[in-house]
Design a protein around this nucleic acid. Sequence first.
DNA 1: ACCTGAACACCGTTCAAGT
DNA 2: ACCTGAACACCGTTCAAGT
Lengths: 243, 243
Amino acid sequence: MATRKRRAERREEPLSRERIVEAAIELLDAAGEGGLTFRALAERLSTGPGAIYWHVSGKEELLTAAADAVVAAAVGADRVSAPDAGDGAAATPQEAIRALALGVFDAIDAHPWIGDDLARAPARSPMLRVFERLGRQVQALGVPHAAQFTAVSALHNYILGTGGQNAANARAHKAIEPYEDRTAFLGAAADAWADLDPDEYPFTRGIADQMRGHDDRAEFLAGIDIIVAGITADWTRTAPASS
Amino acid sequence: MATRKRRAERREEPLSRERIVEAAIELLDAAGEGGLTFRALAERLSTGPGAIYWHVSGKEELLTAAADAVVAAAVGADRVSAPDAGDGAAATPQEAIRALALGVFDAIDAHPWIGDDLARAPARSPMLRVFERLGRQVQALGVPHAAQFTAVSALHNYILGTGGQNAANARAHKAIEPYEDRTAFLGAAADAWADLDPDEYPFTRGIADQMRGHDDRAEFLAGIDIIVAGITADWTRTAPASS
DNA sequence: ACCTGAACACCGTTCAAGT
DNA sequence: ACCTGAACACCGTTCAAGT
């Protein structure tokens, strides 16, 4: 009874993988990548660091599980029976691809720490569900089977690359000035570009002003549109030369 | 004299930022990201860990400098006076873009640890030189000024995303079986995909066999071609909606 | 079966002290 | 000006011991 009571004072539910991942996400959101510590996690769960290892193999698995949970929530269930994401049926594959890409973009915006984590081995990555859903839409686009892998990979890698870049921006943003807003940050980056050596960076200097006012969400979508246009432009060319 | 001699026995040249970065690259190449340690670096340079801080502000700067050196060597000088990379003048902007992208791809292949590092703040990233050179070729392609930033960003982010993915693959590859070759690794990944739940991952399962035999270099280039095709397909659409 | 928390083997970084 | 290396404040992970 005494032990039961002491335990009840310290934590209502028993430890579980789910509760650990949930707490990890909270820590990550609050303090960034450096904030996830087995000691901090143990304290938040009112236990010792060793207890966590009973439910999770180590830090890497924990990070993957956390990223997976966030991506799954952002992108929706993977069941074939629900072909489109929850928010309104997308009329065309193009629109579905845009909605999907935007889901990942916004998830990274809300949880910048996923950005770096997403670049993991694709075979068991949290991004596998995104890959799958992109694939279905590329199929719906009418891309022949032989060109599907290339097409989906192009979209997938572009989304991953932009995500990593945005995560890096968010990190730099917070490090420099926490209360600055996004456009101000982009303005500062544009200033840095405008100051580059004209001999070495003429192009980058020249488009510095163009970056200044841009909405990076719209920019990201424009990139998606470019790739979709490239995919639909010519089926035969999209197959790699080796086949 | 005695101290001079002792020093000469231990190290020929004095410490310098250059020598430190060089040693860091060796460490990174030999043992991966975990291999770069201030203690290991100090031992290799026959000094104490504190000495390194006189030339370099910390680990992050060291990693960026190392990545920058490798990318610079892979992509060549940035001078406008040498518009194309060293290896034979590229006839068309398309070919120049392919050569540039392949340079980054091969650099990551040779030094997988750059892959993760490349996803840093773009403003002072090692990838800025790649961005610049892509920009010049996009200009040469005849893309109107308003659409250039979007076009270059699409290429840049795709290259970054694929690079991160390849770095993750290389890491997993080495972790599982060091002497396996690349196609065998892809085969194992394909097997894993083929075993996925058909209800949740019908598309990914279906193209598992297609991934099996593919050359990832050719696949990467095919993705570049898709994006270039999308860029040249229609100038007006590639500008983001906000402008 | 599950939890505890001290202990181990590391890290990056700092800093008084040397030359 | 530049180097040294002990010391500080952490890490992730393990493991005997508890319940």
